[in-house]
Structure formats: C-alpha cells, structure tokens
Amino acid sequence: MKQTDSNDKNISPRFSIRDGGKTASGGTRMLLTGHLDADAAPDAADTLRSMLEHGCRDLELDCTGLQFISSTGIGTIVAVVGEYRDLGGEVVLRHLAPGIREIFESLDLLDYVTVL
C-alpha cells in the first residue's frame, strides 16, 4: 500500500445542484449529483424555485450524477414540475439511472414527469 496525504478529501456523499449551461433549445440545464434526500431537498427546491422566479421556464435536470433519491426528493421534483407548469414552463429529467427511473415508473409518475 502506498501512503499519500489526503487532508482535503471528503468521502461523504453529498448532493449538489449546479449550472450545466444551456440546452439545445435555449433552456437551462442543471446538473444534479449525489443524494437527493430530506436533507438536500429544501435547498434544491429553493434553487429551482428561485430560477423560476427569475424567469426560467424551460428547465432540464441532468441526473447523470444522481445516485439516490428519497420519497421527499421525488416529492420535491414533482412539486417543482407543477410549479413550472403553472407558469407556462416545463421541466424534463434526463439521464436518470435505471433504478431511479423505475421508481418514477412504479409510482405511476411517468405520465406526470417528463423523463427523457
């Protein structure tokens, strides 16, 4: 075994949501990574709601790095989808891991949430 320093190494999984640039249609892409659970959901909701308040209507959530989602996380995404639609917007989820996509499917939410 080789010994190295790793003082800045954080080995705890976290959730992050950050700007992923523009989509081909000019919408906003956000990158979701980590665990979207009850701890992370409020901040995620605040971020997405703030974007809505600032005029964002076409939103893509890139879930390539999303490893885990709890029922609270699902509820948050579903609620955000509704809030965007209320103001004429649309939210799509891309690159969901198969296990997480199947969860939306098992909850009969694929007719409500657009998953690409």
Partner: peptide, 21 residues
C-alpha cells in the same frame, strides 16, 4: 402518487414507495 402530484404535495410518497419496491 398521481393525486399527491396533482396536489403539489412534496410528502406522502414513502409508504407507496416501500410497497412498490
């Protein structure tokens, strides 16, 4: 779940999720 979604409720999916999975 569809009723929860229509109601914009963020909570209440847990039991359904447990049973489904």
């Amino acid at each position: 779940s569809t009723q929860l979604a229509a109601s914009r409720l963020r909570r209440g999916y847990g039991i359904t999720l447990i049973q489904a999975l």
